[in-house]
Design a binder for these strands. Sequence first.
DNA 1: GCTATTGTTCGACGAAGAACGAACAAAGAC
DNA 2: GTCTTTGTTCGTTCTTCGTCGAACAATAGC
Lengths: 108, 108
Amino acid sequence: MKTYPHPQLDDLPLAEVMQALADPCRIAIVRTLLEADGRELACGEFDLGVAKATCSHHFDVLRSAGIVASRVEGTRCMTSLRKDEIETRFPGLLRLVAGEAPARRRRR
Amino acid sequence: MKTYPHPQLDDLPLAEVMQALADPCRIAIVRTLLEADGRELACGEFDLGVAKATCSHHFDVLRSAGIVASRVEGTRCMTSLRKDEIETRFPGLLRLVAGEAPARRRRR
DNA sequence: GCTATTGTTCGACGAAGAACGAACAAAGAC
DNA sequence: GTCTTTGTTCGTTCTTCGTCGAACAATAGC
């Protein structure tokens, strides 16, 4: 059965984590996981509006940056937030992601 | 005399700030400014190991992301951290940048 | 066995980004 | 005035990134 690699957070450079969170799609994933409050979610449960392959890519980036953890369960890929580890290595980071001002006019 | 545009932090999307900090060179700039503790620094005072043009580009990115402010003084460009504003809009962000774990301990 | 479901991997594409040298601009120093 | 200093702008090159469709793999259910 397939497993995913998950890096240790200790050696992880800040720049890589920032890079991982520098995309609206991936921020949305982390927010959804924060709202899930510890529960695992399957990839399909995120409503991202992108193709499957793209979705898979974003989860890969988040995993490589140590932000989420995934495991296979049946035909699904259950993903959870590495909340405590992130809080230890990058205190305040998740609050930052959670706490953005509510949706207002967005420009690009 | 030339001036630089500086965005308001209120409307600034988190992704843009993350993107701006997703580069080792720019993280180094912010760290240097944090150590300068409020003092303005000229571009040339940062030792980044890149060409002038590249340096100018990085400052531009940080300005556009609302992280630093610059003004011209004589032939130099004095840059400072928008510390309080950042702390209000993105609480904890600067601590995150400042607080990365020091260079890895060697173990025998 | 066969089919449906769920993700992954591959290859491609265009857009964005980092880097550089060269030319330029503005102010100081002389 | 000329020269120096400091940084910006332009044009180019190369790399990385986000996106997609198509093909594939693994499991579940029949």
